[in-house]
């Protein structure tokens, strides 16, 4: 079996500062990988480098494309990479506003990706949008409302629907539950877990919330100062942390 995504020695510097250094890992089909670490540890930099939002200094991000098999996405032509990022890839931003078009209705937001890959039948697009709004627990009656009228949790669910509508194989998530209150977080996590399992998605989730990775991730990478300090199965890393920083991280979680 070929890994869906292979990252090799990915490095990104901001001048003399390290964004992330020498990160390598494989992501297998259907696997969910969590990346945890404190603020400034380079986890978002890493995610943005992999998704092609940032230009990295060296390394490879090899994705198993449908057409040509494993291809380095960093040396891929820009049209091909952008095509990839609206078909096989999805990116869920921390702030739904960054990932949604706030001036366009919920249905239009969900339909945009479909239209971007050539859907030209209004009825079909709308049916798909209704189906997807249902899957993320947004009432069909809100389809023509703008996301500005939605609550934070609904906006985040809409963003997820908008991203998953083209059936991507790899989802990048940057703190998907950040800024939501705990009950809304719980519902969102539940929903994400369901979608990931049903669609057989692979995902890379960046978060500082250990509960999120405990629930969603199969494997875990712990980052500190741009380096990966520990990696392994989620339960293994969280229950038996080896590196001093991981031990600190795990013991910092408040017990209620």
């Amino acid at each position: 079996m070929t890994p869906l995504l292979s990252v090799r020695a990915l490095t990104k510097r901001y001048g003399p500062h390290i964004g992330c250094a020498d990160v390598s890992f494989d992501l297998w089909p259907g696997e969910v990988m969590g990346i945890v670490g404190e603020s400034g540890s380079g986890k978002s930099t890493l995610l943005n480098c992999m998704a092609g939002h940032l230009v990295c200094d060296s390394g490879q991000v090899i994705f198993d494309t449908r057409a040509d098999g494993p291809t380095d996405t960093l040396t891929m032509s820009e049209p091909a990479r952008r095509m990839l990022s609206r078909t096989d890839w999805a990116f869920v931003h921390q702030h739904a506003r960054d990932g949604l078009r706030m001036g366009v209705s919920a249905g239009g937001n969900v339909g945009e990706r479909l239209m971007a890959v050539g859907a030209r039948n209004y009825g079909d697009i709308r049916d798909t949008a209704i189906d997807w709004l249902g899957r993320v627990e947004i009432s069909e009656t809100r389809i023509d409302d703008r996301p500005t009228t939605f609550s934070g949790g609904m906006q985040q669910r809409l963003q997820i629907a908008r991203n998953l509508v083209t059936g991507p194989r790899l989802v990048f998530m940057d703190e998907p539950t950040g800024g939501l209150d705990v009950s809304v977080q719980a519902r969102l996590l539940d929903l994400l877990r369901g979608l990931v399992r049903d669609m057989g998605l692979s995902a890379i989730i960046v978060t500082h919330d250990l509960a999120v990775v405990r629930l969603l991730a199969d494997r875990l990478m712990v980052m500190k100062d741009g380096h990966v300090v520990e990696a392994g199965l989620t339960d293994q890393v969280l229950d038996d942390p080896q590196h001093a920083y991981t031990q600190l991280l795990v013991s910092s979680v408040l017990q209620v």
């Binding site: 209705s105 945009e112 971007a116």
Partner: peptide
Amino acid sequence: GLMHVKLYE
């Protein structure tokens, strides 16, 4: 694709 979003709206 965005052009059609306008028409969709």
